Amino acid sequence: MTGRVVLVVGASSGIGLATAIEFARRADNLVLVSRSREALDVTEEACRSAGAAAVDVIADDVCDPGSAGRIVATTLSRHGRVDVVVHTATVMGYGTVEAMPADVFTTVVDIAVHSTVQLAQAVLPVLRRQHAGVFIGVNSLLGSVTVPHMGAYTAAKWGQRAVLRTLQQETRDEPGIHVCIVSPGSINTPIYYQAANYTGRTTRPPFPVLSPERVAAAITRLADRPRRHVSVPVGPTNPLIISAFRLLPRLYDLLVGPLFRLAALTRTTLPPTTGNVHQPIPARERAHGHWPAKRTP
């Protein structure tokens, strides 16, 4: 299928950027959303070069309660319909629950959970009028397990996963509408280097690390052939980690802390930072992160 209207939220970096380019290669009509207009301009150029039929950009903050309505209204005014919605917008925070400032913790959760709710509330009535459409939420392995020093992000992704699963149940009455979940593991994107951080150390994606294009391929496959009742994992170790978390909780809890420090923290010190949680950092927005280099951004 080509020529669809595809709305990508969080399109200026990482998985969102890779996904936008993948849909562009299919000659779809793209509406790209991000907080950063500067980074969106780069994404727009990349998508036009990749073959998109049309590219519109909207600089808006999905944490704003009115943003979802504005985004969907603008999409309809320009294209008259929306066929695929991909929600990739997210931010990350490192640090214990005790150490992380409440406003940082809350914003990490808001961007994942409340923006998913608000986007669904704005777009699902449109999909119901069309009797067709695909809503894809990009969740995470950490929507199924917990990890020390990542309490804000795991709370965000558990909450988002709950919203998406509920939406799957609540749209069963409309066979043409599909709510899909993609759950990546460790992906080489800039999110690790832009995160809020209260651990005292710089961070990196833990091995094994996959490219954002792997996730983009999974997303475009779902847009072509939606799978309503499953969460599609992207990462070879995801099933093993989830099984250990559920079936061997004592062993999991014994090992997860040391493994996190070994795999996710570097030896480079870092003062406390809010990263891009409250404001975007356009200069650091791109499809790929620094992995495998172990350096401070």
Rank of each mutant, 00 (worst) to 15 (best):
P148M: 08
I58L: 13
R204C: 07
L17I: 06
V163F: 10
N188C: 02
L40Q: 14
L262E: 06
V113H: 03
V84M: 02
Q169H: 12
A27P: 04
T220R: 06
V85M: 01
A27C: 15
T189M: 01
V86Q: 03
D64C: 09
V5S: 01
T266A: 12
G133R: 02
E170V: 05
V97Q: 05
F207C: 05
P272F: 08
G80Y: 11
E45P: 02
F105Y: 14
Q160C: 09
H229D: 15
G133T: 00
V138R: 00
R172E: 15
H87A: 12
R295P: 11
D253F: 14
T268K: 04
A68S: 14
T74W: 13
E285V: 03
H114E: 15
V215Q: 05
V256Q: 00
N139H: 01
V85T: 08
G51V: 02
G137C: 04
P184Y: 06
L270S: 03
A53T: 10
G151I: 03
Q130I: 11
G14H: 06
V117Y: 10
L124Q: 06
R37L: 04
D253C: 10
D61K: 13
G133E: 03
H278R: 15
G3V: 03
V8R: 03
A195D: 08
E45Q: 11
A196S: 09
A216E: 03
I281W: 01
M150T: 14
G51A: 03
S34F: 08
V113C: 07
Q118L: 15
A216C: 15
M100V: 01
T43Y: 01
R161Y: 11
I21A: 07
V57M: 07
P184I: 07
V179Q: 01
R267S: 15
S140K: 08
A59Q: 14
L7T: 09
I191N: 04
A27V: 06
L254M: 12
V84R: 11
I71D: 09
R286G: 08
P226F: 07
L142Y: 12
R204P: 04
A217I: 14
R128W: 09
V138A: 00
T266W: 14
T273E: 02
T19H: 05
E98F: 07
P101Q: 08
V82K: 01
M92R: 13
V55W: 13
F260L: 10
D253P: 11
M92C: 08
V104I: 13
G143N: 06
A68L: 05
P292F: 11
T74I: 14
D173L: 14
R25M: 14
L142C: 08
P206R: 02
